[in-house]
Design a protein around this nucleic acid. Structure first.
Lengths: 137, 137
DNA sequence: ATAAATGCAAATGCTTTGCCCAAGT
DNA sequence: ACTTGGGCAAAGCATTTGCATTTAT
């Protein structure tokens, strides 16, 4: 899917290299918002031949094109293959980030913050304990 | 104010050093969510004698005690002296973070995300262009 | 006196970059 | 051919930490 979208929306001088393909495919296959390092490790385990620098370069490039989402928080950045607006849950204990199926609140993008702030979007992050971490302690 | 709160809520073995005092006072005096480095620079300009490491150590310690809030995003972490629940606006162009006076949506902390997720709070961040940056371009 | 806090510099973690070569179009 | 992308290793930031010394209680 992403591959198709990228062919349409990516820059025309976008080259479809072996590395770019496997990075995109690997990210698409996951719903756990991996860090660049995590993605890199799983690729290596599968025997793929990429460098960490290339993983970073590609993820950032995809983000610049709006084809993946960067998630900032404690620790290293995470990457989300889903770009349609949706929310996240951040576990305070294990640090993992989960997708939340709550409907996107369009109204929030229409709020008037006054003073000439131009709202282009919003982000809603819930934090607490994920199922696993609740069980453990 | 923070000083008072800290005397009550801080750990009993909390020592009131000269550096800690000026760091707390400096942060309280600002509404622009400075980075550790920014706070450090302004202290030095005032002739205060602190090290960057100490600024970091104190800000993190305050955060651990729940007396200040850490803000993660692109670039270095920022610090917010306000701990009562409130929202932020993040400017995509200059990276500054502003407070938003929208009322806190208690209901959102009561959402059931199912599957045993325990929600302890939420964060709402609007992003777009701040007044200054809209003017400039 | 004792434990906590500081300064400094070195270490660390994450991420980017320069350069030169390889590969896609 | 042209130029983007990759690998590697070095550089860059932001942040933390070890250690010897100072300072608050």
């Amino acid at each position: 899917m992403l591959t198709m979208i990228m062919k349409e929306k990516g820059p025309r001088n976008w080259r479809w290299t072996r590395q770019r393909r496997i990075i995109v495919d690997a990210l698409q296959g996951r719903t756990d918002h991996p860090t660049a390092e995590e993605l890199y490790q799983s690729l290596r385990e599968q025997g793929a031949d990429v460098s960490l620098a290339t993983v970073y370069r590609n993820l950032r490039a995809l983000a610049r094109e709006g084809l993946v989402r960067e998630i900032h928080g404690e620790g290293p950045d995470r990457f989300d293959p889903f770009t349609h607006p949706h929310y996240h849950f951040h576990c305070l204990r294990c640090g993992r980030v989960f997708d939340v199926e709550l409907p996107y609140r369009q109204e929030l993008d229409a709020v008037d913050l006054g003073l000439g702030f131009k709202v282009l979007g919003h982000e809603l992050v819930f934090w607490g304990l994920c199922p696993d971490c609740q069980r453990e302690k």
